[in-house]
Computed example of a mutant assay.
Amino acid sequence: MQTILYARVSTQDQTSIHQKAQAEKAGFKIDRVVADEGVSGVSVAFADRPEARRLFDMLRPGDVLVVRWVDRLGRNYDDVTNTIRSLMAQGIIVRTVINNFTFDGSTKDPVQKAVRDSLIAFMAATAQAQAEATKEAQKAGIAHAKGQEGKYLGRKPSYDRQTFNAVLDALQGSATVSEIARTHNLSRQAVLRIRDNTEQVEAALAKWS
């Protein structure tokens, strides 16, 4: 049995090295890392990604596929749920680093299956909702930045867009504000601003980009 970490890395997201370190810190023993670099989880389905396709040939029944969170599989509800169900049907166990969820297709108990499937659906819906919210925040930030062209830019944020996106992802998990602040070397106030004033922070980043 092997444990493979799948990392999807967009141009403004975390690196595969970072995701592997995060998994190992959480107690996973990773045998191999498979990563799709510069791939959008919104517009590119899991089965259409070059490295993701290799996983279906590499994985065997009983193997464990680890992802940082389900958004690494995709940010589309149907794509994520279909992918996890397809993997479970092949006897693959899917585990997440954030929240430490396990999706195993071997259970026969109807109640356990119902709980598992409901959780998969909820997480997939959350991944899509987060992607849509981020996209709207980016559009609002760009529009605001254009409207402020030639005006005082205000104070430059103490973090870049990669950190901003990483904090947004972390806020979807179980980590506390203090834990996220320590992980990304930010103040609690900075994390709270990202959480509570996402559009304004996005606008500030767009103005200074």
Rank of each mutant, 00 (worst) to 15 (best):
V39N: 01
D31S: 10
G147W: 11
V39K: 05
D57G: 09
R54S: 13
Q172M: 12
M88R: 13
R75Y: 02
D36N: 05
A124P: 02
A89I: 12
Y6N: 04
M123W: 08
G74Y: 03
D117Q: 12
E202W: 03
G154S: 11
G147Y: 10
V39S: 03
H18C: 05
N100T: 04
S10G: 15
T15A: 04
A23I: 02
A175M: 14
V34H: 03
G173D: 01
L171I: 11
D79S: 11
K151C: 07
R49I: 07
Y77P: 00
H184V: 01
V94W: 00
L168Q: 14
L205Q: 03
A206C: 07
L171K: 10
R95Y: 05
G62D: 12
V201L: 05
G27L: 08
Q130N: 13
Q130W: 10
R72E: 09
E179L: 08
A181L: 07
S16P: 11
N99L: 09
H18L: 10
G147F: 08
E149D: 10
V167S: 11
L59V: 14
V9C: 14
H18Q: 13
R188H: 13
H18M: 09
N100Q: 11
Q148Y: 10
D78E: 15
A203S: 12
F28A: 03
R54I: 05
S118Y: 10
W69L: 08
L168I: 14
R116D: 00
E37F: 06
V34I: 15
N76D: 15
F103D: 00
K29W: 01
G62Q: 12
H18P: 00
E179A: 15
F122P: 00
I17V: 14
L73D: 06
Q200T: 11
R60C: 09
D57H: 10
D196W: 06
V70W: 00
R53F: 05
G105I: 08
D169H: 05
T3C: 07
S178D: 14
G27T: 07
G150R: 10
A170H: 06
E37K: 07
A131Y: 11
V9G: 02
I93M: 09
D57I: 03
G41N: 07
A7M: 11
Y77R: 13
F103L: 03
A52W: 02
S209G: 08
A45N: 13
R95S: 08
